[in-house]
Amino acid sequence: MKLTLKIWRQESAKTKGKLVTYKLSDLSSDTSFLEMLDVLNEELASKGEPAVEFDHDCREGICGQCSLVINGKAHGPEEHYTTCQTHLRSFSDGDTITIEPFRANSFPVIRDLKVDRGSMDRIIQAGGYISSFTGMAPEANTIPIHHDIAESAFDSAACIGCGACIATCKNSSAALFVSAKIGHLAKLPQGQIERTERALWMINAHDEEGFGNCSNTGACAMVCPQEVQLLDIARMNFEYNRAKCIS
């Protein structure tokens, strides 16, 4: 396969970036998208040119570090894939592919396609936990949880924190990400004690980090690699309103 790549190159958050065109040939359709970037970087390295910086780690769709917007779609053309699961067979020979970083005002560019997603960490710091210290826990089976509730909590807990929802949202709202954590913990009995503060604090942090408002377009759920559902956003709003009413 032959591909033309237009890749976003940006020295740092303080400088302007631009698309730079590269051409690659002799690619196999079994190559993954990130391996294609490896090939490009090897070519650049052997010419002594700086590599295209991009984030990646586990390359099996679970760590959430890879973060590319490919032809305008977070994580690439396939629905519910991560960037690392995207393969070249989703493209055709001769295609031109535009690659940009996950963009949002709260995701400053570090270099090229690498962005700083520390804002998501800080939202979790605000309340996305259960304050049970090591050694405090009661015997596990003293808290029976209905099978379906555990499964539903898992659906929310499966969020890999990649930020595709934010990158996709036209408003850069982190609603799906925040709601996945609020939903996960609100559904479980262990999460009840801190439920009220958690909703208030996390949404407060969400706003302070500069994320936008949710317009319920649903684009976030369409790109989410773990298929976290929009219902979690509704659940988050419920938790917030409940907290406001009783706190």
């Binding site: 032809n71 963009r103 949002a104 005002n105 996709t168 850069s172 408002n213 377009t217």
Partner: peptide, 21 residues
Amino acid sequence: NRKSRGEKYQVTDNSTSTWYS
């Protein structure tokens, strides 16, 4: 929302949501 978005994408793919939403 405009402020939160920051720099715009060079290419956008709108297939994930309806135009009216």
